[in-house]
């Protein structure tokens, strides 16, 4: 499985990462060799084998619909890079027209 530079760029954009052209090169080659390696899973006959999402066969964990104490506004914002008016300030999101 060879992964192209364009694919690396697309994946980087999906993952909100940014790379230099040199890094893109390196990633393309490293990811290609890792993906080549994982191709070995294709050797196996998986007919009738169910995927495992959870190792233990447990189901249904719930909580009751009861309010529990959370964080104060100060605690919520204590690590924020740009707190303002009790909120997290971010650059404007472009939407619509």
């Amino acid at each position: 499985m060879k992964i192209s530079k364009e694919e690396v760029e697309h994946v980087a954009s999906l993952a909100r990462l940014e790379f230099s052209p040199a890094e893109i090169e390196t990633f393309a080659s490293q990811l290609s060799s890792i993906l080549e390696y994982v191709e070995k899973l294709g050797e196996l006959d998986l007919a009738g084998v169910e995927p495992t999402a959870h190792v233990h066969e447990i189901v249904n964990a719930f909580r009751d619909d009861v309010v529990t104490p959370g964080l104060t506004n100060e605690e919520a914002l204590m690590n924020a890079p740009y707190p303002e008016d009790g909120c997290y300030r971010v650059a404007k999101v472009i939407e619509g027209e």
Binding site: V66, V67, L71, D85, G86, C87, Y88
Partner: peptide, 14 residues
């Protein structure tokens, strides 16, 4: 367990 009620000051039901 945070409340769903409306109208609270921002980032207080968190």
């Amino acid at each position: 367990g945070c409340s769903t009620s409306f109208g609270a000051p921002p980032n207080t039901h968190v």
